[in-house]
Amino acid sequence: MAQENAIEIIDVKKSFSEGDYVLNGINLKVPKGKITVIIGFSGTGKSVLLKHILGLLKPTSGQIKVLGKDIASMGDEETIKMRKHFGVLFQYAALFDDMTVLENVQFPLKEHRKDLSKSQIKEMAFEKLKQSGLDEKHYNKLPGEVSGGMRKRCGLARALALDPDILIYDEPTTGLDPILTEMVDNLILSTHNHKEDTASLVVSHDLHAAFRIGDYVAMLDSGKVLLHGPPKVFLESDNPLVARFVSKGVNKK
């Protein structure tokens, strides 16, 4: 049986100035129920690709099918509706700093689940925060009053609030110490195991983490997918750039 794809990127090109392509014909499939990690050196187009998937940027050409629908050709209203299928954990969590940890998680529920009562919303937010492993004593603190790791957990709880079909992690371990990095990796794995049909897409330059958590890894270079497949494909690759990235990544650890 053919594997169902949550995201399908077909020959996507993006140019901000004439002739200069940041994305130069990207083809990539992100299957449901699997963790796909996008890696690459800085400036290879990872963040730009992510913005295209989320509908924040429109490609110059090509298609980005999210749950079977091309997000690139959607109008604003339809794009906003489509985004409800995403849960995004930002690099620095991007928590609203005038809301408490609990209010941050309640926010998407209040916005989109008008059918729920206040107590139901609170109950669901508690559940997501517990799932993310955040202790109850921190729920009424402001984001500025908790540690970086706790902010990540809260950001993940907020991303999970609407039970999204696609979870996106934007550089989740950048700037974290090795212990916190491992904690975040474990969090991604446990979250994924909690709801197995969710497609997880992790954008990272941490190769060690990519091999540890990824079912599939895609390496970007010069706006193209250089290599895509299970982690072992990378270890066996004789492409000099991949070999260099792998050796640097492994040596670093």
């Binding site: 989320l54 924040l56 409800k84 930002f90 690099q91 991007a94 928590l95 998407p108």
Partner: peptide, 12 residues
């Protein structure tokens, strides 16, 4: 701090 991006991707 990407809070505006966060709003957008939450469909707000």
């Amino acid at each position: 701090s990407e809070q505006i991006d966060a709003l957008e991707v939450m469909g707000v």
